[in-house]
Simulated assay, not measured.
Amino acid sequence: MGAEPDWDAVTAAVKAALGPLPRLQPGDELSRQRLIENLAACRQGRLWQADLGLTELPPYPFACECGRSGCDLTWSATPDQYDVRSTGRVVADGHS
Rank of each mutant, 00 (worst) to 15 (best):
P22N: 12
R32E: 15
G27F: 03
P26Y: 07
E29I: 00
E37F: 06
L35H: 06
N38G: 03
I36F: 10
R34C: 05
G19C: 07
E29P: 02
E37P: 01
L18S: 05
A13Q: 13
Q33C: 12
P20C: 09
G19N: 04
A13H: 11
Q25R: 11
Q33F: 15
P26K: 11
P20Y: 04
N38D: 06
E37C: 09
G19A: 07
A9E: 10
I36S: 12
E29A: 15
Q25K: 09
L35P: 00
P22D: 14
I36R: 12
V10T: 14
V10A: 15
P20K: 10
R32I: 03
L18D: 10
I36C: 07
G19T: 04
L39K: 09
S31V: 02
A12L: 13
D28A: 11
L18N: 06
R23P: 03
I36W: 06
A12R: 13
G27Y: 02
Q25H: 09
K15C: 14
L30I: 00
V10P: 12
L30S: 03
A40I: 02
N38C: 05
S31Q: 05
R23F: 03
A9T: 13
A12H: 09
A9G: 12
N38E: 00
N38L: 01
A16L: 15
Q25C: 07
T11I: 00
L24F: 07
R23Y: 07
G19P: 05
E37W: 04
P22T: 12
R32C: 07
L21P: 01
A16V: 08
G27I: 02
L18Q: 08
G19H: 05
L39G: 02
Q33P: 01
A13Y: 08
L18Y: 05
V10H: 14
N38V: 01
T11F: 08
P22A: 12
K15L: 15
L18W: 06
T11R: 09
Q33T: 08
T11L: 08
P20L: 05
E37V: 10
L24I: 00
A12S: 15
R34S: 05
G27L: 07
E29L: 01
N38K: 00
E37N: 09
K15T: 13
L39T: 05
E37D: 11
A13V: 11
L35Q: 06
R34F: 06
I36Y: 03
T11G: 13
E37I: 10
S31I: 00
E29K: 04
P26H: 08
P22R: 14
P26V: 03
L18A: 10
L21R: 14
P20R: 09
A12W: 03
N38A: 04
Q25W: 01
T11W: 06
S31K: 03
V10I: 15
G27Q: 10
L24A: 13
D28M: 01
A17E: 11
Q25P: 07
K15H: 15
P22I: 06
A17Q: 07
L21V: 15
A16D: 14
